[in-house]
Amino acid sequence: MKVLVPVKRVVDYNVKVRVKADGTGVDIANVKMSMNPFDEIAVEEAVRLKEKGVVTEIVAVSCGVTQCQETLRTAMAIGADRAILVETDAELQPLAVAKLLKALVEKEQPQLVILGKQAIDDDCNQTGQMLAALTGMPQGTFASKVEAVDGGVAVTREVDGGLETVKLGLPAVITTDLRLNEPRYVTLPNIMKAKKKTLDVVKPADLGVDVTPRIKTLKVTEPAKRSAGIKVPDVATLVGKLKNEAKVI
């Protein structure tokens, strides 16, 4: 079967972001960008399914600026067969991305779409569910285990209080949780090979999708700072402070 894996270029998870002084957003000029960690897990899962013989082709997709090509090259170095960039400088919100992906799903006809459960920049956790809704596919969100079973996939999901398993008919949408797998490191020979793989570029207009944002960001501010705490020398002092000063025990 064919798998579509959407990947997002985000500020690297190790970067401590700074809010711009004018409150218009977060300063991402000159900071390190990487593939969203949940998306790496999605690519890795697709590659593992291919290694098991379940999957025949992996198509990586990214929506955004020209530099997203680097993210797609990374996906191909992990093992994706080819890539599509939906190129635009516009601000893309999850609903718009879901509509772009829907158009690509109609064109490519994958049996599975594997996404990360959320992007670590906007922390939305929406795109996979929205894509499933728009395409009428079932969804297996927050997956910690994916198994091909007779005529579908069994997805074990991380839910509050434990795990639950659902069986989905194909085609289906899956979103990855952290414990699904450990993504492999890309090797230099694979990075070189990835440069030769096909990367197609399309525009949102080619797909007939209006990407106008529906949510306006009015301002972005620093979170309230916690007032500076103190260090206590020993356990007795700590207990005393908690009882008499903070009154929480």
Binding site: Q129, M130, E158
Partner: peptide
């Protein structure tokens, strides 16, 4: 914004063709 709510809310929003606000 629990595992259950996050699973369903975006699906409802997309079917209504509206954006969703998370968390």
């Amino acid at each position: 914004a629990t595992a259950g709510g996050k699973n369903v809310a975006p699906r409802v929003a997309a079917l209504l063709d509206v954006a969703q606000v998370t968390d």
